[in-house]
């Protein structure tokens, strides 16, 4: 694998909120700052794929970065604040804010979706960012939400991101939900999930109906995910290693040479 490909693979698997740490480590390992140009394309892919969030100078909330609101040349737009901005993919900082007015045949739907989505996210995400952007020559709308929670002092970080593509002419919605959790106190544990969802809201549905269906799909997914933790714990985890031998007693190591496999062990367990 080439140097660029190796570095890109590191960036791609960076946990939520740890891009600065990963970049710093890469530079130290290489022993120079020359990595910057190798890393630039990987940073852009990572930020757009992860829906990196950024506070605009003078703005209040955080806006997100994705391939759907890219204007090219590292500039992105935000519908709600009617502005565009330059985004530095290496430092994840925004600058050069300009006025930007969305031109789309779906402008009204975009605005009402932003409103409905805002109510939905404030009810289910303690902290999140969202965006709705026309895509595919104005024939579809991308509906994006991302929620981050970083707690590096407690050695964990997490991200929940959802993206849906709504086609107004058919009323179909296809989406993907991804959860990424990193825990790294005396170890390195990672939860990565992805779930594809498909549903239909009927042609020319209103914003509230679209968001209601999204909310239902996410609720169902989170409930399924919670159950999956339980079944992995009761299933695969238990099947790997017992907490105690079947005798419910720790081993008598002084007598270990007297244990006869398959006979004494397990008090006559049928094999």
């Amino acid at each position: 694998m080439s140097r660029t490909a190796a570095l890109a693979s590191f960036v791609e698997s960076t946990p939520p909120g740890e891009l600065t740490d990963v970049t710093k480590a890469i530079k130290s390992i290489l022993g120079d700052d020359s990595a910057q140009s190798d890393l630039a394309p990987a940073f852009q892919r990572y930020n757009e794929e992860q829906f990196a969030t950024v506070k605009l100078p003078g703005g209040s909330g955080e806006v997100l970065v994705s391939s759907y609101n890219s204007l090219g040349n590292d500039r992105y737009y935000d519908v709600e604040s009617q502005s565009s901005f330059a985004f530095d993919h290496a430092t994840q900082k925004a600058s050069g804010v300009k006025s930007y007015v969305l031109e789309s045949t779906h402008s009204d739907l975009v605005k009402s979706l932003l409103k409905s989505l805002g109510i939905h996210t404030s009810e289910h995400y303690p902290k999140s960012s969202l965006g709705v952007y026309p895509t595919e020559d104005d024939s579809q709308l991308a509906i994006i939400t991302v929620a981050n929670k970083y707690s590096p002092s407690n050695f964990w970080n997490g991200r929940w991101r959802s993206s849906y593509i709504y086609t107004p002419s058919s009323g179909s919605i296809s989406g993907i939900i991804k959860v990424d959790v990193h825990y790294y106190e005396d170890g390195n544990v990672r939860l990565l999930t992805n779930k594809v969802v498909q549903f239909s809201v009927g042609a020319n549905a209103g914003a509230s109906e679209i968001v209601r269906q999204i909310a239902n799909a996410e609720k169902k997914y989170q409930e399924d995910l919670n159950k999956a933790f339980g079944s992995l714990s009761e299933g695969a985890f238990k099947a790997l290693r017992r907490q105690l031998p079947i005798t419910r007693q720790k081993i008598e190591w002084e007598k270990i040479s007297g244990y006869r496999l398959g006979q004494d062990i397990g008090g006559g367990r049928v094999r």
Binding site: V181, Y183, G187, V189, L191
Partner: peptide, 22 residues
């Protein structure tokens, strides 16, 4: 491992998104 994999990781998911309305 049980605590981190099935307790902590699940709790963080719940911290990111709440099933009941906030």
């Amino acid at each position: 491992l049980q605590e981190v994999y099935f307790g902590k990781a699940k709790d963080v998911v719940g911290d990111l998104r709440s099933i009941p309305p906030l």
